[in-house]
Amino acid sequence: MHSQKPRERRMPSKIALGFAAALAVLAAGSATAQTNKYDYPVTTVTLTTHSKPGSGSDLFLRKLSKALSEEMGINFVVDYWAGGSGAKAMAQLAKAKPDGSVFYATTPTHVTTSLLSAPPVTYKDIDYAVNVFFDPEIIYALSSSPFNTMKDAVEWSKANPGKARWGGSTAGSLERQILERINSASDAKATVIPQDDGAALLINVLGGSVDLGVGELQELNSYIEAGKVKVLGVYYPDRLAALPNAATIQEQGLDKDVIRKFRGLAAPKGVPPATIAKLEKAVQAILANPEFQKEYKADALVAGYMSQADYRVFMANFVKEQEGFLKQFGVTQN
């Protein structure tokens, strides 16, 4: 009697695998929708940024989307509306449906773009929903730099008028404002050189084209840990837990007031207050979550919750400050 050969196992086809994956995605989406803890009006929310993948805003939104998805039981996804330093994103947001399905990551950039470039759609055409974090700025230099603090850099610049080269990102950026304020207040007589963006600035600091730069710890941390750059000062009212030995600019006597870089969410005009209230409640919940706190504190982000009402007031005051800076220092688009 002949024994039967064992039947060969057939590998699933790519079509079958794709179909199974699609079913898994649909099942996950359905499960998420069924666990809508806040009774939010939509089950998928898009968080957009005008920045590129890997930027500070991108990292902020990725952390935020994950935390909000888990807290609210709905889907949050990140999308990129790059172009025009926020001009394109504001235009897209302004025409989006005001149902709580789309929000835009706000930083000072969209305000300075509105004031300097006067695009067809500006900050006046969108609404502010909630602020989440403040993002302290770090002044840094090459590890081989003779400066150990920003005060050292200022003193050297005063002793060598016109020779210091400080890199300050784009023309109206907060990073440039920080250096212009220090330069003016201390009469350092340094040359503040605008850069295309934070990445270009870092390259020029590493290459020695500029003596120092300003950036965020999220972007600089790996270079600090690798010993390539060192911190000269922290531009924030308090020292950071992640950098306990780095003195603030105020401690160094270089600036009395500190402009805080914010990270929040803007919405199309007309989103119902009840919808915004649910988002406000969820943001407060995740900021109080110990696991999420470990994540954002590791990146030196500071919880900066503001309700819609408070955020609107904050932004109105911020716009006035920006208008004053641009006028005082004669900053233009170029």
Rank of each mutant, 00 (worst) to 15 (best):
M11H: 04
M11Q: 09
S13W: 05
K14T: 08
G29H: 14
T32H: 06
Q34T: 12
T35Y: 09
T44Y: 05
S51I: 01
S57C: 10
K66N: 04
A67F: 01
S69G: 14
G73K: 00
V77D: 02
V77Q: 06
Y80K: 02
A82G: 10
L93A: 09
K97L: 09
A105I: 11
V121W: 02
K124L: 03
Y128T: 02
F133N: 03
D135N: 15
L142N: 15
S144R: 08
W166N: 07
G167P: 06
T170E: 08
A171F: 05
S173G: 14
L174N: 12
I193M: 08
A199I: 07
L202G: 03
G207A: 13
V214C: 07
G215C: 03
E216L: 14
N221V: 09
N221G: 04
S222N: 11
Y223V: 05
V231D: 04
L240W: 13
L243Q: 09
L243D: 08
T248M: 12
T248P: 10
Q252G: 06
I259P: 00
K261D: 07
A266E: 01
K269D: 01
K269Q: 06
Y296R: 06
V302M: 15
S307A: 12
Y311F: 15
M315Y: 10
A316V: 01
Q322N: 04
F325T: 04
Q333I: 10
